[in-house]
Design a protein around this nucleic acid. Structure first.
Lengths: 201, 201
DNA sequence: ACATTAACGAAACGGAACGTGCCGTAATGT
DNA sequence: ACATTACGGCACGTTCCGTTTCGTTAATGT
């Protein structure tokens, strides 16, 4: 039936409750990790029933992915005029998203962001969040190549995967933070001898 | 009661069955991943009851960790006389262990090794396996420093974490393989401008 | 030969957690 | 007033973990 207004019938979904559910998910994720995340605890902390959670999110993986996405920031596209500073800002934004996902309390040793790499969750969060960040990373590297800072056939994916992996392994798995200077040193090294696509095997 | 021989009483534990259990675990891990690993399926595939599994391993995490460890190889300590070749062999051994854990069938896109980074499993496998590999990595870098190839205060941990993270992210999470040439390019870059411990912040 | 000890397969069990369904109630639009 | 939908609370079926029990089997000692 065609409806006169765009409004849905009946009692509207409580958007503030949605917010509380996502906040509760992030908090419990940071505390107990993904395997220890209990939907009933989320509902309890958000002050609602499991019912309200499952009406919004299909399952636990969907809930976790949306919670991460809603607490992450795509961030501004860096533009310092050189690849080194742009890339540093890019990886620091990634790191900041991880820290934010661990509830802002524990800057290191968090298990909040690790959920993003669970087999069930990664495909979802990759498609809805990481791809945007990745596109930014690709762009800032190719922009540097266009400026002549890097060879035209620079292997941008390899560079970005290197720093994504480093941050994941150190921050979320080992629970040890990376200093900006450590990032800077690795970035300087990689940009000084950039890997190229199609390097002969 | 003191016993005359060192032999245990009663029916001895079937060591071949232990082998079959670990093999079955690796196979099912590669196929279904850690969350999808069912102890009952392991028992079925190994041709025994759950009983026999739990007599050997305390829980699912312990089983998975031991399965990975038993299928991984510490490997020979590389010694090519230069850090670049030693480090390349080191990271290729890590990659080979990942491929082996994915049942040797799917060289890429495996989820067999990803289990090593599950919150429950990582502390166990780190202590019993990764530390040995890590010690080898530290040693070959420090050996290079002693030869004057690298500064004495080179940040060996940062270098090893970089390649550990890269392999993890690409191989186990994205499911895309890394060519030896890509490793070589990254190693060359890092060794050309090596990060140092205590770089000023 | 016989007893002792412990591993074995099969099966039943309790507990935890996921995800669903039902109820009565609250909120909104017609 | 009525239809429609979200809400909290609760009970339910299902799955899987890890434990326990039972009868059987294999090795050892006397």
């Amino acid at each position: 039936m065609a409806r006169s207004t765009g409004e849905a019938l009946g009692r509207p979904t409580d958007v503030e409750l949605t917010r509380r559910i996502l906040d509760a998910t992030i908090e419990l994720l940071a505390e107990h990790g993904y395997p220890g995340l209990r939907i009933e605890h989320v509902a309890k902390l958000a002050g609602c029933g499991k019912n309200a959670v499952y009406r919004r999110f299909a399952d636990k993986a969907e809930l976790a992915a949306e919670a991460l996405r809603s607490h992450g920031e795509i961030g501004e596209m860096p533009d310092h005029g050189n690849v080194a500073d742009d890339l540093l800002e890019h990886v620091l934004q990634n790191q900041a998203n991880q820290v934010r996902a661990s509830n802002g309390e524990t800057p290191v040793g968090n298990n909040g962001w690790r959920v993003a790499f669970e087999p069930e969750v990664f495909p979802i969060i990759w498609e809805r969040f990481f791809t945007h960040r990745r596109d930014q990373g690709i762009e800032l590297i190719l922009r540097g190549a266009a400026r002549g800072e890097l060879p035209a056939d620079v292997d941008a994916d390899l560079i970005l995967d290197t720093f994504a992996g480093l941050t994941l392994f150190r921050q979320s798995i080992k629970g040890v933070s990376i200093t900006p200077e450590q990032y800077r040193a690795m970035i300087a090294a990689v940009l000084a001898s950039p890997p190229r696509r199609g390097d002969p095997i």
